[in-house]
Computed example of a mutant assay.
Amino acid sequence: MPLYFFRISHGRYSGVSDHPSEFADRDAAWTEMKSVCANLLGGIARTLKQDAHWHMELLDETRKPVFRIRLMGETLD
């Protein structure tokens, strides 16, 4: 089964995970990424500053990004 690594851009959990996660396929990896992101999103949204962004990526075994979920706080004038 393929190995994947989570990478988070900002906050308490920022950086690349030290331990890979194993998923049956890309669909399973995407489903798990959405679940992990959903669990973190409430805390991230509460502390997100104006004109800031946060993102989570799922990297493959070579540490190349496969999926990305972004949250942006934009000021519109």
Results as ranks from 00 to 15, higher is better:
D27C: 00
G11Y: 01
E32N: 08
S14N: 14
S35T: 04
S9D: 10
G11I: 01
A38G: 12
T31R: 08
Y4G: 00
M33T: 08
I8P: 01
W54Y: 15
G42I: 00
G11S: 03
E22T: 12
S35H: 09
T75D: 05
T75H: 12
E74Y: 02
Y13E: 15
V66I: 10
P20M: 02
H10V: 13
E32C: 04
L58N: 05
P65L: 02
L40S: 05
L59V: 00
S9W: 00
M1F: 06
E74S: 07
G42C: 00
D77A: 11
A28I: 03
F6P: 03
K34N: 13
G73V: 02
M72P: 08
G73T: 02
M56P: 11
K34E: 14
E61P: 04
F23R: 04
I44H: 09
A29D: 08
S21P: 04
C37G: 03
E32M: 07
E57V: 00
R7T: 00
F6Y: 12
L3R: 09
D60A: 01
S17E: 15
V36W: 12
R7S: 07
V36T: 04
A28T: 10
D27V: 02
T31Y: 09
E61W: 01
C37N: 12
D77L: 04
R63K: 15
G11L: 01
D27T: 05
P65D: 05
A24V: 09
M56V: 12
M56I: 12
G73E: 10
A24K: 15
R46F: 01
F23H: 11
F23P: 05
K34A: 03
S17T: 10
A38E: 13
H53N: 14
W54R: 06
A38N: 13
T31P: 01
D25Y: 07
I8Y: 10
W54S: 07
R12G: 07
C37A: 11
H55T: 06
T47F: 05
P2M: 02
T47A: 09
I8N: 03
A52D: 15
Y13F: 12
A45L: 14
G11V: 04
E22G: 10
M33I: 02
K49N: 11
G15K: 03
E57R: 12
M33F: 02
L3W: 03
K64G: 10
D18S: 11
E32K: 13
S21T: 00
E57D: 09
T75N: 08
L76C: 10
G15E: 01
R68I: 06
K64S: 14
R12Q: 13
D60E: 01
K34V: 09
S9Q: 08
L48Y: 09
L40R: 08
F6D: 06
K34S: 06
S17W: 11
C37M: 10
E61Q: 14
V16H: 00
N39M: 12
G11F: 01
N39G: 14
A24G: 11
L59W: 08
R68K: 13
V66M: 09
N39A: 14
L59M: 02
M56A: 06
L40E: 12
I69Q: 05
D25C: 05
R46S: 14
D60M: 01
E32P: 03
Y13A: 13
G73N: 13
M33L: 13
R7C: 04
I69D: 07
